[in-house]
Simulated assay, not measured.
Amino acid sequence: MRLLPYFDAYAIAAQPRERMFPGAAYQRALAGGQAGNYPVLLVDGVVAGVWHQRRQGRRTTVTVEPLGRLSGAQERELREQVDRVGEVLEAGPELVVGKVTVGPHA
């Protein structure tokens, strides 16, 4: 389980795209077939969702939109990843699992 940022080399260079972005991930995480315009949630090395972080003062909210059901173990791993984002940003992290409403990076 990893949260990859915008324009991460792993997601951009992955070929064939259909294997890296299976099913709904192909439509949701690619902007017109172009990788990198959304930060992605990786599960077992493939894209399984998108995410977005919004900082407000000393807090950051990380919204994760999984494209399938996460197991209990995967939810714990996701929490660890969000905590790591907060640590890097030196901000208190909050995890929200739900729809990412922002569009692709321009």
Rank of each mutant, 00 (worst) to 15 (best):
R54L: 10
R54T: 13
T101P: 00
L41P: 02
W51I: 04
R58Y: 12
G103F: 02
G36W: 04
E77R: 13
V102C: 07
G32R: 03
Q74N: 10
G103A: 04
P22Y: 03
Y26V: 04
G33N: 07
G49F: 00
N37M: 15
G45A: 11
E75L: 15
Q27Y: 11
V96A: 07
D44I: 07
R79M: 10
R79A: 13
A11L: 01
R55Q: 14
L67T: 08
D44G: 06
H52S: 14
R28D: 02
Y38L: 05
R59I: 03
L95S: 01
A48S: 14
P93R: 05
V85Q: 07
Y10G: 01
R28C: 03
A91F: 03
V82T: 00
M1K: 02
Q74M: 06
S71V: 09
R28T: 11
V43E: 10
L70V: 08
A13W: 06
G86L: 02
E90L: 13
A91R: 07
Q34L: 14
G92P: 07
H105T: 07
G57H: 09
A29I: 05
L78Q: 06
Y26D: 10
H52M: 14
G92T: 15
A91D: 06
L3T: 00
Q27D: 15
R79P: 03
G33C: 04
A106F: 12
E94T: 12
L42V: 06
P104S: 03
G72E: 14
Q27V: 12
Q74G: 04
V85C: 08
G92A: 15
E90R: 13
E65R: 11
V102G: 06
P104I: 04
L42Y: 06
R2Q: 09
Q74H: 04
V40C: 08
A9G: 03
M1E: 01
D44H: 12
P16L: 04
V85L: 09
S71H: 10
V102W: 11
G23D: 15
E75R: 15
A73L: 11
E65L: 09
A11N: 01
G92F: 11
A13S: 09
A91K: 03
A31Y: 11
R84F: 14
R2N: 07
E18W: 11
Q74C: 11
G68T: 14
K99N: 09
R55N: 04
G49V: 03
E75S: 13
H52G: 06
V82P: 01
L42G: 06
H105D: 11
A24C: 05
V43M: 09
R84I: 01
E75G: 08
L95Y: 04
A24Y: 04
L4S: 02
I12A: 02
G45F: 10
V47Q: 01
L30K: 00
G57Y: 11
R19G: 01
L4Q: 01
E80I: 08
F21E: 00
A13P: 01
V97F: 00
Y26R: 11
T63V: 12
G45H: 08
L4M: 00
G33E: 05
T63N: 10
